[in-house]
C-alpha cells in the first residue's frame, strides 16, 4: 500500500459561517503499480483529495499515510514525500518559467541538490519518456505547442523520480492528437517504469481505455472504487452524479433494451464490435 486514507474529513473554513465539507469519511487504499482514474462532477472533491496525497492539505480529521507513515507525523519528511508523490496540476504549462525546456525540467532536481551528472541524466530521461523531441530542448518552452508544453511540465515532475504520479485533467483543452500523446506517455510510465498513476479525468472514453481501477467521487465522498467494467455497469447512477458512460457502452445498453442478447460490461470500441458480431452469429 503506497498511500492510505483513514477516515479523512476535510472542511474548508471550519468555525466560520461559510464552512463547507469538501471530503467526507474517505477510506481509500492506493496500491503500488496500479493505474487509477479518479472521476467525479465539478466540486465533488477530486482536487481536494489529490492535494491530501502529498500533504499539501492536511485533513481536518483522520489521516493520510505514505507507506504506513502519517503525513501528520512530526518525523514525516514532506519534502522527500513530495518528490515521491508527484502532482501535476491543471494547466501545468502555466507554471513553466525557465528560458529553456532543459532548464525548466532541471529545476526540481537542482533543488534536491543532486550532483550535476545525476541532474543531467534525470532531465534527459524525463524528456525522452515524455516524448519531447531533442531538437527543442534548448528552445524556450513558450514557443512549443499546447501539447508539447504540457509534456514538458510533466517531465519536470518526472525528473523528481516519483513513485506515484497524480495528474489533474492533463488532457483538458488539448486536441485529440495531443490527448492521445499524453495518455500514451502515461501508459508507458505505468507499464515500463512501473509508476503508480492517478489520472483525474472528465472523459469516460479515456478512463475506460487506460485505467485498471476507477475511483468515483460524489459530493465529497467515494461512491465506488472498482474495475472500469464494474463501474460502467452503473450507467443510471453515474448519470445522476453528473457523469456518463463511454459512448459504446451506451450503444450496447440500447441494443439490449431492444432485445439483443449482448453482454454487460463492454467499454471499448473493439470489445463492442466483437460483441455485436458475436450476437449476430458472424464472429
Amino acid at each position: 500500500m503506497i498511500l492510505e486514507f483513514k477516515d479523512v474529513n476535510y472542511i474548508y473554513d471550519p468555525d466560520s459561517t461559510i464552512s463547507s465539507v469538501a471530503l467526507k469519511d474517505i477510506n481509500l487504499s492506493i496500491r503500488e503499480g496500479v493505474f487509477y482514474a479518479l472521476i467525479g462532477h465539478t466540486g465533488s472533491g477530486k482536487s481536494t483529495l489529490i492535494q491530501h496525497m502529498n500533504g499539501l492539505i492536511q485533513p481536518t480529521s483522520g489521516e493520510v499515510l505514505y507507506k504506513g507513515m502519517s503525513l501528520r507525523d512530526k518525523n514525516a519528511d514532506l519534502k522527500m514525500i513530495r518528490s515521491r508523490v508527484g502532482l501535476v496540476f491543471q494547466y501545468p504549462e502555466h507554471q513553466l518559467f525557465e528560458t529553456t525546456v532543459y532548464d525548466d525540467v532541471a529545476f526540481g532536481p537542482k533543488n534536491l541538490k543532486l550532483p550535476k551528472d545525476e541532474i543531467d541524466a534525470r532531465v534527459k530521461e524525463a524528456l525522452i519518456l515524455t516524448g519531447v523531441d531533442e531538437s527543442v530542448w534548448q528552445n524556450s518552452p513558450f514557443e512549443l505547442s499546447g501539447g508539447q508544453k504540457r509534456r514538458v511540465a510533466i517531465a519536470g515532475v518526472l525528473a523528481m523520480k516519483p513513485e506515484v504520479l497524480i495528474l489533474d485533467e492533463p488532457t483538458a483543452g488539448l486536441d485529440p492528437g495531443g490527448r492521445d500523446e499524453i495518455l500514451n506517455v502515461l501508459k508507458r510510465l505505468h507499464s515500463e517504469e512501473k509508476i503508480t498513476i492517478i489520472l483525474v479525468s472528465h472523459s469516460m472514453e479515456d478512463v475506460a481505455g487506460y485505467a485498471d481501477r476507477i475511483i468515483v467521487m460524489n459530493k465529497g465522498h467515494i461512491e465506488y472504487e472498482d474495475s472500469p467494467v464494474q463501474i460502467f455497469r452503473h450507467a443510471e447512477e453515474l448519470k445522476n452524479m453528473g457523469l456518463s458512460v463511454p459512448q459504446v457502452t451506451d450503444v450496447l445498453t440500447r441494443l439490449k433494451s431492444k432485445g439483443w442478447p449482448v453482454k454487460d460490461g463492454i467499454i471499448t470500441v473493439s470489445e463492442a464490435a466483437d460483441e455485436i458480431m458475436r450476437v449476430l452469429g458472424k464472429a
Partner: peptide, 15 residues
C-alpha cells in the same frame, strides 16, 4: 490533422 471521430462513428467503422 490531429483530430478524431466520435466513438460511435469509430464503432460503425469497425463493424
Amino acid at each position: 490533422y490531429r483530430l478524431d471521430v466520435p466513438q460511435v462513428t469509430m464503432l460503425a467503422y469497425e463493424l
